[in-house]
Structure formats: structure tokens, C-alpha cells
Design a protein around this nucleic acid. Structure first.
Lengths: 260, 260
DNA sequence: TGAATAGTGTCTCTTAGACAGTATAAG
DNA sequence: CTTATACTGTCTAAGAGACACTATTCA
């Protein structure tokens, strides 16, 4: 950052600095008793109202957009994301991750407005709270296919596209999946979450996945009173419960071996 | 991005939007004829002058900082990074990658100034051009250790720290190494580049690395006139030349297998 | 008992990693 | 003929992937 230029002429400064959040969740739709549910990756979008608080026409009215808001001068975009998420959904403590900045000239008709984009993984349960805090008509959970088809405000299509790319990458390379799951889960649940985003034969094939998963260093079987803890929530056969531990896997294209 | 609030009161807007670039290179110091050179990861920093063009005292004068500059309202931070890099070094066409935004209140005494941070990999050759375009006294290539010890302007220590983290990650997970190497290179050169950043026994061990590397899907042996092309620039024994192809490796913690 | 989910047994083929050995050319 | 680099041979143990088989429970 060179300040010479800054003083040498009057620079045009941005007209706004926004923080936007792509809120993802995976919904489970029951597929019958004792069956693993069908899962879908969904994104939360809000419909922009026709007028603002003062009754003036709203920009990009009627279109769907990512939740978010303007960053205040005494906070970071990260904090704005936390605050807005809490205001809109009543939920905090979620893992928020920055993934990009959108600053193309002309991306917002109001002027030179930057967007600092984040994504968030929300466990399905959080949605139940959300429904009560806001009118369901202007906040919706959409599948990715639907979200990319509807009329999106600003450059939010591009932002959502990118967010999905980052989610896929992080799902494959990190233990991100844990944020989509309850603390204790069954292998078919993990498999279901992974398959909403990844397309990998070794995950898809039951035999391969059920053999491999218990050996993963970041997963551990749950015990209770010295006995392995099982659940039959998705099957007649009681299935072993697992949880993520704190192991952070590191992979490399040159060595392939998991390390942490 | 909700516009209600935008219209409902006069928002404070940022005082500046900067684009900073962490320029990395790996220097080779000859270790004697027919020996692989010793390599060091280095970063390019500039020393902030005491006064600006108009003779006014400069902010953070005398400290070292990342090259960069203010984003103009008709360009993106990415374009600013390209422009500044060209202005400062006379070189274009480098791979510029965004990795973060720095927006903590108080990070810059001049006001609310955001920094959009990028890193760049510069091949060693580019530095020779650079030396001629600028006074060498206020642009220096420093080892990482040195860079993190000297007096850095603003929050550039944090930015550099983060940049190094991203470089290490990308070096392990992508074919980033190619940007540190000539088009055709010998395996010991690749090994040297990787070892400046990664600490992996399967890279460090010659036998393992020399056996593995030729099988990597993103590397291919170079041929010329139907014969394998060799070089003895770093050894008496002619060594096979390799180049990167366009294969983009994808790894996963759940499957470990390389895919593209 | 059948049906559905949750695993295991076993086999084959490939790969990682270690250790030792061979090959090449300069001086 | 020594030395330093660049590999290759060979072994072992672990892992991936495929296919068939067993185990558990509910209705």
C-alpha cells in the first residue's frame, strides 16, 4: 500500500462495503421408517422487498439475494456477517468462512459497492428456529439448481457459484462435513452428506465406504459405559455412532498420505 | 445485501480500498558446479519513503511493506494488483491469486482503509528485469525469516503470515510449484522447490521422490527428436527433463486417490 | 419368514516406503 | 578411479476396490 498517491490527489473512495453470506444446509427428507433420508444441499436466500423502511423503492426489488448488509466502520466484514446472521436467523456460533471479494465496477447500480463474501454451514436444526423469526415468504431454502435458475440480484449468481465451488473443495479436503451433521452420527448419514456434494465412487460404494470410514483418523466410534454406542434411527440393524475428533487432515498431491 | 438500511441513514463509507501483493520467488544460490543449487523462498518488500511526491511526511515511513496501491473506481483489486506489479517491476502475466481481505478498524491511521490481499509467484528470472527498473535500496528480496523480523508497516506482518500459509497449502495441493520453475526442469529442481516450503519425508527422500515423481499424472518427461531430453546443468549424470502438463489434481481426505 | 440396512471375509492388484545397488560423466 | 548425482531392483506391508457373504432387527 503506497501512500504517495493517496495524498497526491483526491481519490474516489468506495460508496459502500457490504458483507454477504451464503448460508448452506443439507436438508433430510424422510424416505420411510428405518431408511436413511434423502439429502439435498440447499442455500438460504431472501427476496428483496419492493420498498425499504421509508417506503422508497428498493433497488433490485423482487429479486432473490444472499443475506448480508453493510459493514460498519467499527467492525470487520466478518463481524458484520455474524451480526447479520444473528439478526436474520437468531443463531450464532456458526462457522463463517471468507471466500472472496466482489468488486467489479458496475456490479451495483447504487455506486461503487464492494462485497466481501462468506459462506456458512448451518446444521439442519438451526432452520427450525429461523422459521419462527421471519416471514417464511421472503426467506427460502432453495436447492442449488433452483437457486441458480431464479432471478438473482446483483452478481449474486456468480457469488453463489463460487461459494459452491469452495464448499465442494472444503468438503473434500477438510472435515467440513461435520458442520452438516449432529455431534454423533451414523456412517450412512456421513455418506449422505458427502454425496450431496461429492461424486466419488469410493464414497458411493457401500462396501468401500463402510470399510474405509472407521479407519479415518478424524473419525472415532462413540462409546457409552464401556460399550460401543449404536443407533437404529435409520435402520433396523443398530448402526455404530461416530463423531469427529480434532484431527486436521492434510493431503498433498506429491505424497497422498494423510497427515495432521 | 439488504438495501433498506442503506437508504435509511447516511452510512459511513470506507476511506480507501487498497490492493496489496505478496510477491514470492525462490532464489537459487549456486552450490558449486554440477550440484543442485540451494534454494530459498523469498518475498519482495519495499521500504516506504520518508516523504511523498509533494514532500509531505509519509505514513509508516521507513517501514517495510508489501507493494500495492489504491484501487481505482473503474477497476477491480485484481486489476490494480496487475497494474501495480507492472508499474513496480515491469513484469506482467504472472499468476495473481486473492487470498484475503484485511479490514480491522484501526489497521491504517489514515482512516478506514481496506486491503484486498493477493499473492504472486515470480520466477527467478523476472527479478533480473526488476533490479533495473527501481532503486535497489528500497526494494528488497528477503527470506521469510527476515521479512517477519523487520519493522513492517500496517498489519502487513499478519498479511505476510497468511500469504505464506496459503502458499504452503497451494504448493501441497496444486501444481503451484510450476510457477517457481522453468518450463523444463530436472527432478532435483522440483524437489528443491517443494522442500523450501513443504516438509515431507516422501519428498525429502531421494529414492522415494525419484521413483514417485515420474508417475505423477501432472508431470511428463520431455522428448526431443524422439529421444528423451536430458540436462546435466546440476549433475554430471545427465538427468531427465520434465514439464507440467494441464492435469489438475484433486485430492480428498475420504478417498486419497488423485483425480482430475 | 422376507426385506432392508449394516456391515465382514477374502481375494487381487497397486502403491508406499525402505534399503541397497547400478549408471553416468567430470576431473 | 574417485566422487557426486541420478536413478533402479527388490522386498514388505499396507491399502484400494470388487464381490460375495453374514448379522441384526422389524413387520
Amino acid at each position: 500500500m503506497v501512500s504517495r498517491e493517496y495524498n497526491s490527489k483526491k481519490f474516489i473512495t468506495p460508496d459502500g462495503y457490504a458483507s454477504d453470506i451464503a448460508v448452506f444446509t443439507i436438508t433430510s427428507e424422510s424416505n420411510g421408517q428405518y431408511k436413511p433420508p434423502i439429502k439435498f444441499l440447499k442455500i438460504m436466500l431472501i427476496k428483496r422487498s419492493n420498498q425499504d423502511h421509508e417506503g422508497n423503492p428498493n433497488i433490485e426489488a423482487g429479486k432473490w439475494a444472499l443475506p448480508g448488509g453493510f459493514v460498519r466502520s467499527n467492525e470487520t466484514a466478518f463481524q458484520t456477517a455474524e451480526r447479520k446472521l444473528y439478526e436474520e436467523t437468531g443463531v450464532g456460533g456458526l462457522r463463517i468462512k471468507h471466500f472472496g471479494v466482489y468488486d467489479s465496477p458496475g456490479r451495483d447500480d447504487r455506486g461503487w459497492i464492494l462485497s466481501n463474501a462468506h459462506y456458512v454451514i448451518a446444521n439442519e436444526e438451526f432452520l427450525k428456529n429461523r422459521k419462527t423469526t421471519k416471514d417464511a415468504s421472503d426467506i427460502q431454502l432453495l436447492t442449488i439448481e433452483d437457486a441458480l435458475e431464479i432471478n438473482l440480484a446483483f452478481d449474486h449468481r456468480k457469488i453463489i457459484d463460487d461459494a459452491i465451488w469452495f464448499i465442494k473443495k472444503d468438503m473434500a479436503l477438510t472435515t467440513l462435513a461435520k458442520h452438516f451433521l449432529p455431534k454423533e452420527f451414523v456412517l450412512s448419514e456421513l455418506q449422505g452428506v458427502l454425496l450431496t456434494v461429492l461424486d466419488d465412487p469410493s464414497i458411493k460404494t457401500d462396501a468401500a465406504f463402510f470399510r474405509k470410514a472407521p479407519t479415518l483418523p478424524f473419525l472415532e466410534a462413540v462409546s457409552e459405559n464401556g460399550k460401543l454406542k449404536k443407533s437404529n434411527r435409520y435402520s433396523k440393524t443398530p448402526a455404530q455412532l461416530y463423531r469427529f475428533n480434532d484431527f486436521q487432515p492434510i493431503t498433498s498431491v506429491y505424497s497422498k498420505k494423510l497427515k495432521g
